[in-house]
């Protein structure tokens, strides 16, 4: 039986006002101390790099059968093609960081410890972004390491001395981080893991199917700006080829994705500040 006196644990240290730093420390401690973080990040790396490798090997093996037009589309975006699937996994991580707190009731405990909501929101977003950026850099360079030899032996120029190639590789962590933030926002908005993940999957895999089949220029324009196509456009280095599906420019893709993220983050932030926890 434990002693019921509390005298032995008095704190004499003066009270210091909590700041962004404390929120950041706490959020880092949170993301470090659950297994789901490690699982999702591991799956993201394995899936992205693995599929990039697979696509590279298959493309290389079939190089002779590719048309000149198809060969012209092979560039750095092909090297990191697996990221197309990896984004969804970091999106799920973004969802989980928030939705598990709502699902378990931990959010109320968190807010009791740190009631300044906008600061807490910012800390969560920053920690997630940093973790995903690091993961994204690993994915980009690991993919480059394993997949690029399959293309360079066919004469594709993937040299990192070209600014465009470096820019395409660095777009990977940025793309992943923005999608993770979209997941985070959906977690805050929907507060429910399954609902938020379904919405994310819908946005990335279902919406493009619909826009792809929309007729006319409106369909084409919409198809360009859906999150998955906007994100993919960020990693393209080759010039647009006639006859292929129109895409945004890399910078256009980045801006489109930024707008998507803002469209979700801004209401998420507003609701988090104003809704009952």
């Amino acid at each position: 039986m434990t002693a019921t006196t509390t005298r032995s644990f008095h704190m004499d240290a003066p009270i210091r006002r909590i700041t962004f730093r404390e929120a950041l420390d706490s959020e880092f401690a949170k993301i470090r101390s659950v297994r789901s973080t490690y699982w999702t990040l591991l799956i993201c790396v394995v899936l992205s790099v693995g599929i990039s490798l697979l696509i590279a090997a298959v493309t290389s093996a079939n190089w002779d059968t590719l048309s000149a037009t198809n060969r012209a589309t092979v560039d750095m975006s092909s090297v990191v093609a697996g990221v197309y699937f990896g984004v969804l996994v970091v999106g799920v991580l973004g969802v989980l960081v928030v939705s598990t707190e709502y699902g378990t009731g931990m959010m109320r405990t968190s807010l009791t410890a740190f009631p300044r909501r906008s600061v807490l929101f910012l800390a969560k977003a920053v920690v997630l972004t940093l973790v995903v950026l690091v993961t994204g850099i690993i994915i980009a360079f690991a993919s480059y390491g394993v997949a690029s030899p399959f293309y360079t032996k066919h004469g594709v120029d993937l040299s990192l001395s070209h600014g465009a190639n470096v820019r395409a590789l660095l777009a990977v962590p940025v793309y992943l981080a923005l999608v993770a933030l979209m997941g985070l926002a959906l977690g805050f908005l929907l507060r429910h893991t399954a609902a938020a993940i379904s919405t994310l999957v819908g946005l990335f895999f279902v919406v493009p199917i619909i826009t792809n089949f929309l007729p006319g220029t409106l369909g084409k324009d919409l198809n360009k700006i859906v999150p998955s196509n906007a994100g993919s456009a960020m990693m393209v280095t080759h010039a647009a080829t006639p006859g292929s599906t129109p895409t945004l420019s890399p910078i256009g893709g980045f801006v489109a994705l930024l707008i998507w993220t803002a469209l979700l983050i801004v209401p998420a932030f507003w609701f988090f500040r104003h809704r009952d926890a």
Binding site: E22, D25, S26, S33, T109, A113
Partner: peptide, 8 residues
Amino acid sequence: LVLAKANG
């Protein structure tokens, strides 16, 4: 620890 860090 998470809670302790939130209040320094």
